[in-house]
Amino acid sequence: MKLIDLNPLIPNKIEQTVDVPKKQPSASDFSFYRKLGRTDLMVSCLGLGGGKRISSEDTLYAFDRGINYFFYSSDLHHHLYSSMGDALRKLCGRGSSSREKVVLATVTYMVKSPEAIVASLLDQFIDLKMDYIDVFFWGWIDTGNEAAFKNCLSASNDLRGPNSVYQRTIERMFETSERMKKMGIVRYIGASFHSLDLAHQWLNSPLLDVIMVRHNVAHRTAQTKVFAKLDSQDPQRPGIVTFKTCGMGSYLWEAPPVLPASCWIPSCPDLYRYSLSQNNVDIALAGWTERKHIDEAIAGIEKGPLTPEELDYFDLYGDLHRQRLKKEEIPRHRLIYHS
């Protein structure tokens, strides 16, 4: 053994691993990149989910345009997500020079107990040939699977960070790497809630780092049950991701029948802006299918947050989509017209 003078010990904190973003849109009050809640992850405010079969070429295009948050499923609807697989293997696979520039979120919908996690993780590691996952999500959390979710969430501390019991198990099956050793196989835990009451219940859990909820102009309950319950100044608040921003079941970018003529019909990028204009929302997850959508979304974000008047109009627009008002009940002073 060699003896040389040593420097004092500096607290061992995992470095910020997402590189300084290459793109910083201008003329916007939106911060295109933001810290994802209490995590150390810097994420683009628009994320790309693969559930609409986006191609790998277009996924790489999104990355080139500055999108760094990617959401992927290895079990439910894998046949849809798999078309972005090649891109994620290129960006996040072993030896990739881009890995630290990407925030990879994966989800499992099938695992119902901590015992079954290993199989799901192994599937994901074999599928994407990667070293680690940034955010591992429990998917589709509803009252029907609440007990299983609680049980699974109890394994958070065994999943997160380096040298976890699940990491050692995966290493024995999948071979380790320096990156895996350093980062662990999973950095943070997330949950995608379909029940907003459950999302509210788990908001302050130390076992949960990122919360994903459905939110759009027509379904705004998350604003009161989730977003409003968080303190935007609290560095320990969980990260918030919204999905179904452009509609669930209906196409919100299409005018509701009762909308007066010449009124503003929000585009998908406007609908992302609506979600991102809410307090504490970090990411609006998008289901783009082609690169034109990516360009439009980024251009939309560059317009910045909606004004209070615009937000009020969008609320009304959402209510009209839900048929909450008859044509004669529409308060004209809240309407915004676009030529």
Binding site: P114, E115, V118, S154, A155, D158, V165, R168, T169
Partner: peptide
């Protein structure tokens, strides 16, 4: 090592 980890995962 492997059996201890496996036991833990199966008997949390």
């Amino acid at each position: 090592g492997a059996s201890v980890d496996a036991h833990y995962i199966s008997h949390r």
